[in-house]
Structure formats: C-alpha cells, structure tokens
Design a protein around this nucleic acid. Structure first.
Length: 585
RNA sequence: CGGGGCGUAGCGCAGCCCGGUAGCGCGCACGGUUCGGGUCCGUGAGGUCGCCGGUUCAAAUCCGGCCGCCCCGACCA
C-alpha cells in the first residue's frame, strides 16, 4: 500500500477526547474515527487488524470443530419474548418497530436465534454435539461508553454456541473453548487471566471471564498470587474473620445524636467498626413465574465491610436491585441512619454469614438519635436468609489458601457461559435421545469482542512514540520508507517484497525524513525498512524492529530473504506465548 | 440515572469575566527552500462561534431552554 494513496491520515495532536493510550494512539495513527458516543468507523488500518484478529478466531474455532455461519442483526421481538429477555433486559436493548408495527430487536447477542435454529434443525442425538459460530455486529446501548474501543455500543463479536446432548458434552466443549480462547488471546499477544464470574443476563450455571489486567480496565478482580484464585469482585469470596466467642450481654439503649454513619458511630462510641452492624436497604424486583414482585430487602453486613449487591441480588434471586428511598424505609418501620432489623415488618432480612458469629454488635434502635449495644442475632432479631453478601476487598483472605487477595483492574476481553437448558426450555428446543426420549438441547455460549481485543493489544503494546502492535495483528508487516534521492531503489524494494507476498506499507510521500520516521513510529508496524542515499552508499537497506532501538544494514540484494527471516522471528516470538493452560473450575 | 467538565476552521487551542468587523499553532493548496527524526520562508483557501429562543442599537461574549461529546460513579459483556 502506498501511503500517498492511503485514505486515513495521522494526527499530530492528541484528540481532546482521548485519555488513555490505546484510544489516543488508535485515533492518531488513523485506525479509528468516532461517529457518536461508543460508535466508531474502522479505517483501513483497523479493518486490516480486525480481519487478522477474526481470522485467528476462525482458525481456533475451526480447530475445536466450529462451523461458521452468519445470523441476522435484526430480530423479531417474538423470539426474545419467548425467552423473557424482552422483559428482563432494560434500556440496553435496541428496540424499534418495523413498517407493520411489529416489535423488533437489534441483536445484542444471539442465543435466541440459535435456539430458534436448534428448534428447527436439531432433531436427533445423532446430530450432537455441534458447534456453530459467527462474527457479527452487536448493539448494546451501554449507559456509559468510554475509553475508545474498550467500551462501545456497537461492536463486532465472535460468538459461538455449543449444542450437546448431555452435561458431559457441554463440559467438553466448555473446556475446549477455555483453551481455544487462551490461544486466541496469546496469538494476539494479549496476556489474560481467566476468572470466575457472575452469569448476569445470560443465565446458566458457570461462567468465566477472560481479563486483560490493566489499570484502565473497569472491572475489579481479586487475585491470590499464592494459589492462583481469581474472581470478579462481583462474586469473589474470601475467608471471613473468626471473632472470639463472648457471653451475650443484655441489650443497652444509648443516645447517639447525629450519628448516622458507621464511621461517626464507631468514633463516638470508641469501638472498632467491626463491632457494629451496617444496615443497607434495597428494593428487589423478584420474578415469580410470569409475574414479578417488589420486595423490601433489609441487608445486614458487619460495619467494617461493604455490601456486594450482585451477591445480594443472586441470593434473593432478584432481577433488579436498587437503593430504597427514605419514604420506603420509613414505610417498613425503620428509621434511616438509625435502622435496625428489630421490629421491622414486611421485609426480607438478609444477613451476612459473618453476623451470626459476631456477638454483641452495635445496631440502630429504630429511633432517631439512638442505637442499641449488644445486639445478637437469634435473640434480638431473626434473619430470613443467612448468606455471604459482602464485598471482597484488597487485602482480604483468599478463600482457598488464606493468603492476602490483591485487587486489580481488568478489561473483559472474552467470556464463556454454561447455559444448560436456560434457552432450550423456553423455546422447546428438543431432540430424541438413543432411547427415543425427548430431551432438551444443552447449550453453551462463548464470546470475544474483536475491537476490544484490538484496543487491549494497543493498550499493552505502545511507547511514547506510538503503537507497537504484535505482528499477528499489525495492519502490515513492513513499513518501507523512501527518503529523498533513493526513490527508484525504494520502488524496486517495494515491488520485490510485494512479489514475495510480504505485506508492505510504502511511504512514497514527499515528506521530510522526520515526518516519515515519526509516522512510522506512530503506526508502529513491526519492521521498518529505510532506503536512503546513505544506505545506498553501502548498497544496503536499513532494517529496524519497532520494539528495538537497534537498526541494521542489510545488503539490498538480500532484502527479501533477510526480511522474511526477521518476520519469521517476530512470528515465532508470538507463537512462543501460546501455551496450554490448566482448566480452573 | 447522579456528579463534574467541555462545545469557536480538519486537529489542538485563545477570545467570553468586562457585548462593538473572529484570532493563533498545526494541517491543507500554491511557489521557493531543505532532505536521516515532526526543515525554513512567502502567498492563500477554509468558520451557521453546537441548536433554538430572549435581552440589547449591537451577542462567540449576558440570560433561558435544548442537543452533543468527555471524565468519575451507578450499571453493564
């Protein structure tokens, strides 16, 4: 490709909207342009990189038996109503009506379409197991797109769907994806860890997220360096402390004027926060059959810890959870700031499992300006549910080995879900087994966002001068610079490399050397060749890897052969990253 | 959805407080110059000052409403 003809151009200044490296550099190097919040155009460089990423996905999917198809972006709402997600998913779903007034959905994922296909195509156990996938546009109207391609509204995802006759089959396909996903990320040069995660809107029984660890990520993970435990903070467990046993003391009412937070209360009473109980009030929307019901949830965690809303939502099986308003709190007989579970009515009391072993806590008195000392569960109040509902924090004890957990930020570049019969039941997707019995098809779903993967690679590989994308996903392999007075020789080198099948970006522009070098660093192709009067004096071409400071002169007559050797080295270095990863269930 | 910031030429910004003919740098076009790290000189093109309304003799500037974009949080894959 001749740069003089290239559609995209580089930018000298940092666009004001870019705050993180990948966003800034992808904009400046001319990979992407923004159309609206979370909606991007992929320019020639990005398109080439994404195609390479997607071809790696195709190879790895094919290797585990995947067959590529392509499913629609626009769906009739009926199939989403059938699985109930039309009602469960909120404003994130793109909805519109077609000309006849029918409800339509913009694809945010494809379980419904797959289930519809399965229903029509799969009839016999002989057709199972099966694996289908496609690479396709998704629309998710995210409330907060940010950070360039890290979090967008319209994106391309490779999503695959496994179909099995039994759970053992699902397990095999799930594990196959687990390794295939590591292969894909490693081949793109992106280091990831797999963590257990909440199943969220997908439903199902088990899920892993593949996380690229970076401070610019938006998910928080808890990782144990000692035993390797890793989980999304949404579901991370930890070893709770084991407080000393004490005799239960009589309840004592104390005056605590203006003490509405745990900090103020603990300071005022001169006790550690761990001797207090923290009450959090939420309104949960809980589905019951086709109906749903709003319940007031009174959640209690120890004062030195925080509530994990995802754990709470999962515990009470809530579809939605929101903080209760002051009016709602008063309506159940509690007093905001001084609330206690004692003598409240019409509430679901959910108590963290640390509370029953923590004696003589300070809790609200349900009276403005008063708290109670020596409150004990069982004697003074009852719990409807006792469960782990606290948020794991940096420094808490690992649930597996007891060592300190470390909190880290990450970007979710992929996820895998064991769906089981979550979708096949609602859509009546069945097959006949060997005994002629009707069975539900067992499903799994697996996704990787290609743009987010590109952004993660850009985030991982850059320096102050620009991108340094791995050779497997860089838009071209070689950046050929022609400097003044060497045009003819450069043209010859360009043609030879092209004929040898090397992907070359050829800077044939009439620009000063400084501009060309700066653009080459910014775009960051793996290998730079410079043909100049200076190099020609030695009958040579200069080569320089983008990830190295060292330049080398090679005889111009051996250019193709030497370049191919250098490219092979670069490919091998990435291939060395691809390793077997033990499955962590 | 809550909090904060921004919107002036393709990009980065000044001008706004204190109303009076819209500026700078980069980029772009043309001419010359230079040629291994964003050369230098000259000439030039390019702007509904986000949109609507109000105040005023006069609005980029003051007031009101709306829209858009960015960041933090909630949320989300």
């Amino acid at each position: 490709m001749r740069m003089s003809k290239l559609f995209s151009q580089t930018l000298r200044d940092r666009p004001s909207e870019a705050e993180i490296a990948s966003h800034e550099l992808l904009l400046r190097a001319g990979f992407i342009r923004q159309l609206a919040a979370g909606i991007f155009t992929y320019m020639p460089f990005a398109k080439r990189s994404l195609t390479k990423i997607e071809n790696i996905m195709r190879e790895e999917m094919s290797a585990i038996g995947g067959q590529e198809i392509s499913m629609p972006v626009v769906h009739p709402a009926d199939i989403w109503k059938k699985t109930n997600r039309w009602y469960q998913i909120g404003s994130e779903m793109g909805r519109f009506k077609d000309k006849a007034g029918r409800d339509m959905v913009l694809a945010m994922t494809h379980e419904e379409v797959v289930a519809d296909l399965v229903c029509k195509e799969i009839h016999s156990y002989r057709q199972l197991p099966m694996l289908i996938y496609h690479i396709q546009t998704k629309w998710r109207d995210d409330p907060r797109p940010r950070a360039g391609l890290i979090r967008v509204r319209e994106f391309t995802m490779k999503d695959s769907y496994s179909l099995d006759a039994d759970m053992e089959g699902l397990d095999l396909q799930y594990r196959a994806h687990y390794q295939a996903y590591f292969n894909i990320f490693h081949r793109c040069g992106v280091p990831v860890i797999a963590v257990k995660s909440d199943v969220g809107m997908m439903g199902g029984s088990l899920a892993h997220e593949f996380m690229y660890l970076t401070p610019v990520g938006e998910d928080t993970l808890l990782i144990c360096a000692d035993c390797g435990y890793a989980a999304n903070r949404h579901i991370a467990r930890f070893q709770k402390p084991n407080p000393d046993k004490e005799d239960l003391l009589p309840v004592e009412k104390i005056e605590t004027p203006e003490m509405t937070t745990i900090e103020e209360l603990a300071d005022f009473l001169g006790v550690p926060k761990s001797r207090t109980a923290k009450a959090v009030f939420m309104i949960a929307t809980i589905p019951e059959g086709t109906e749903e019901q709003e319940k007031f949830v009174f959640a209690i965690v120890r004062g030195d810890m925080n509530l994990n809303e995802i754990k709470l939502a999962n515990t009470v099986k809530a579809k939605e959870l929101r903080p209760a308003t002051d009016e709602e709190i008063r309506a159940v007989g509690a007093v905001p700031g001084y609330a206690s579970p004692i003598a409240v009515k019409d509430t679901l009391v959910v108590v963290d499992d640390l509370i029953p072993v923590s004696p003589n806590l300070v809790a609200g008195a349900n009276e403005e300006g008063y708290h109670l000392k020596n409150v004990n569960i069982g004697r003074d109040f009852e719990a409807d549910i006792i469960a782990d509902i606290t948020l794991a924090e940096d420094g808490f004890a690992c649930p597996q080995c007891g060592e300190k957990l470390h909190a880290s930020r990450g970007v979710e570049v992929g996820n895998i879900f064991k769906l089981g019969t979550r979708y096949s039941k609602d859509t009546d997707s069945t097959f006949l087994d060997q005994d002629g019995e009707t069975q539900y098809v067992i499903m799994g779903s697996y996704g990787i966002g290609s743009g987010r993967l590109l952004a993660s690679a850009a985030e991982e590989y850059n320096d102050e001068n620009g991108l340094i994308l791995p050779i497997t996903i860089a838009p071209y392999e070689v950046h050929l610079l022609s400097l003044k007075g060497a045009e003819e020789a450069a043209q010859g080198v360009y043609e030879e490399l092209m004929n040898a099948g090397v992907e070359v970006l050829y800077d044939d522009r009439e620009e000063s050397p400084g501009v060309k070098f700066a653009d080459a660093d910014l775009i960051g192709l793996p290998l730079r060749l410079t043909v100049s009067k200076r190099s020609l004096k030695e009958n040579s071409v200069e080569t320089k890897r983008r990830d190295s400071e060292q330049a080398e002169l090679i005889p111009i007559t051996e250019t193709v052969q030497r370049v191919q050797t250098l490219l092979t080295d670069l490919h091998n270095e990435i291939q060395d990253l691809v390793v077997e990863v033990p499955f962590d269930d």
